[in-house]
């Protein structure tokens, strides 16, 4: 394989050079945690972070994204709003790369979503290896997301004094001119493979069964009491979907400017866990029960996308389990579902 290397002491100059050319966002301390934020210099980055509060999806599908501007008067004129910001998302962990990969499929499949695809096309992604399990809620290894499978332009692996750098795309190659990269030595390559095999053995497998069986197990559990049991705890607050790297459902709303003659149509994050998500204007609600909504989310994560795209829509990051006020943990639910055999 082709591997580059950059000295750790040279990473700051690389990032600062990127900042001079692009908007750069990355994990930075926020209160007692880390959050993806726009950074003004390398020193603001917290590259040893465990996991950010929100995944980097917010740069590809912003919480509020204006998609059409309109003007009224003798009918209407409407124009799509396509974001052209050249942006680098720096320091993305493997789990979140897998999340972005799934979003890529979702928005490119069938009717192509130009708003997403433009953002994605304008975004460079520099991933970074996490060296140790981030917290007790994460189960990336079980979901097959311990290693990136693509979706990055560059990917950094900590090899002591240097980072080993994998180049995933032509765009990634073009970023190399911003820093002092050199082809990795044989010793560095050895260290790289050793780092990965160490990681593979050190990270825990927190799902108690072969996840290939997960879709079938969830199908079997469709009418189980487990959903009713979870319903008694769930507040349907939707926090799980907000923090999920693969939750993308949205609502579309209009906002008129004060002149009432112009405005924007925007989309905002929505959640299948909220009570009115599947409600129709006539008064019907096709998923009015919390248990049905919980089941829908879990089956999307562990069954539907696997069947459609060949990959789970759960990357095992554990954010939802941690965000849940009543400790509903996807990992635990999967294990419960699997415990029946």
């Amino acid at each position: 394989m082709h591997l580059y290397a950059i000295k750790k002491s040279g990473l700051g100059a690389f990032v600062d050079s990127l900042i001079s050319a692009y908007e750069v966002v990355g994990p930075a301390p926020k209160e007692f945690k880390n959050a993806y934020s726009k950074i003004g210099s390398f020193s603001e980055l917290a590259l040893g972070y465990n996991t950010t509060l929100l995944p980097p999806k917010k740069y590809l599908i912003p919480q509020r994204e204006e998609i059409i501007s309109y003007e009224l008067g003798g009918g209407f004129t409407a124009k799509p709003i396509i974001d052209g910001t050249k942006r680098v998302i720096f320091g993305v962990h493997s789990c979140d790369l897998h999340g972005i990969w799934l979003l890529d499929d979702i928005f490119a499949e069938g009717s192509q979503d130009a708003h997403y695809l433009a953002r994605r096309g304008n975004t460079f992604i520099v991933g970074i290896d996490c060296k140790e399990p981030c917290w007790e809620h994460s189960f990336c290894k079980s979901m097959g997301t311990l290693k990136p499978a693509g979706g990055y332009d560059l990917f950094l692996t900590d090899l002591g004094d240097v980072y080993g750098v994998q180049v995933g795309t032509k765009a990634g190659e073009s970023l190399l001119e911003h820093g002092a990269f050199a082809p990795a030595s044989y010793a560095m390559k050895d260290a790289f493979f050793e780092a990965w095999s160490r990681k593979l053995s050190e990270f825990p497998d927190r799902i108690n069964f072969d996840t290939d069986r997960l879709p079938a197990l969830l199908a079997e559990a469709y009418d189980d009491l487990i959903w009713d049991a979870l319903e008694e705890r769930c507040f349907d607050c939707g926090a799980c979907t907000v923090v999920c790297p693969t939750c993308y459902c949205f609502d579309v709303l209009d906002e008129a400017r004060l002149d009432m003659k112009s405005g924007v149509r925007y989309r905002k994050w929505d959640s299948c866990q909220l009570q009115g998500f599947a409600a129709v204007a006539g008064g019907g609600n096709f998923r009015g029960k919390r248990s049905d909504r919980l089941r829908h989310r879990l089956l999307r994560k562990g069954k539907y996308f696997k069947e459609k795209f060949g990959r789970f829509a759960c990357v095992g990051c554990g954010r939802c389990g941690r965000a849940c006020l009543v400790h509903i943990d996807v990992m635990q639910v999967f294990n419960q579902v699997g415990s029946k055999g």
Partner: peptide
């Protein structure tokens, strides 16, 4: 079927019945 087909193009998630987008 009647469902909340908000986007009509298989993206927004509202009209899903199990794994099927009713709008598609």
């Amino acid at each position: 079927l009647e469902r909340r087909m908000k986007c009509g193009v298989g993206k927004c998630g509202h009209c899903q019945v199990d794994d099927v987008y009713v709008c598609q």
